[in-house]
Simulated scan of single mutants.
Amino acid sequence: MKPPASAFPFFLRRARHMYVVCGVLAALTACHASMNTVTVAPTQSTLFYTYLIAHGMARGSVMSGEQNVAGVLRLANADKNAFLSVLTAERFPKKQNFYAASNALVLFLQEIDTNRK
């Protein structure tokens, strides 16, 4: 016995079946997809690279003459604190050490910006 004729041409009947299969698969994969989140937790490498960039910014501002004399001394102190805290976080990778190093780097960057003439 012959199957009933469809109103769609032959190639569109196949496409219709493919669309149905793809739709069902898409619905099933959407049900099982988990929500991935991006974390921006600092690592030893990112803290060290951030320190190097901030150190270069401080050096550039001193060499260009943008810092006053008292600002250079405060800048050197902030540089030393940031460097020691980054080294501590690199040697002892604990959450509080990363937090202290991040705070020291923020203070160092603020010191670079506030001491300009």
Results as ranks from 00 to 15, higher is better:
residue 96 Q to T: 14
residue 25 L to S: 14
residue 11 F to E: 14
residue 32 H to W: 04
residue 54 A to Q: 01
residue 110 Q to D: 15
residue 52 L to A: 15
residue 99 Y to D: 09
residue 110 Q to I: 04
residue 7 A to W: 01
residue 62 V to R: 02
residue 102 S to K: 05
residue 54 A to E: 01
residue 92 F to E: 03
residue 36 N to A: 15
residue 70 A to E: 14
residue 61 S to L: 05
residue 10 F to H: 13
residue 36 N to W: 05
residue 29 T to C: 15
residue 99 Y to G: 04
residue 70 A to T: 10
residue 83 F to W: 04
residue 114 T to L: 10
residue 115 N to G: 09
residue 19 Y to W: 12
residue 116 R to E: 01
residue 77 N to K: 11
residue 9 P to E: 15
residue 111 E to F: 05
residue 22 C to G: 07
residue 4 P to A: 15
residue 41 A to I: 09
residue 87 L to S: 09
residue 86 V to R: 01
residue 17 H to D: 10
residue 76 A to I: 05
residue 64 S to M: 03
residue 98 F to W: 00
residue 2 K to S: 07
residue 48 F to D: 10
residue 51 Y to C: 12
residue 49 Y to N: 09
residue 41 A to V: 12
residue 80 K to I: 12
residue 1 M to K: 04
residue 104 A to N: 02
residue 39 T to M: 05
residue 105 L to F: 01
residue 69 V to C: 07
residue 31 C to W: 06
residue 71 G to C: 08
residue 116 R to Y: 04
residue 79 D to Q: 07
residue 93 P to Q: 05
residue 32 H to V: 01
residue 105 L to P: 01
residue 88 T to L: 02
residue 54 A to I: 02
residue 62 V to E: 06
residue 27 A to F: 08
residue 89 A to F: 00
residue 70 A to Q: 08
residue 55 H to D: 13
residue 72 V to M: 12
residue 19 Y to K: 15
residue 60 G to H: 11
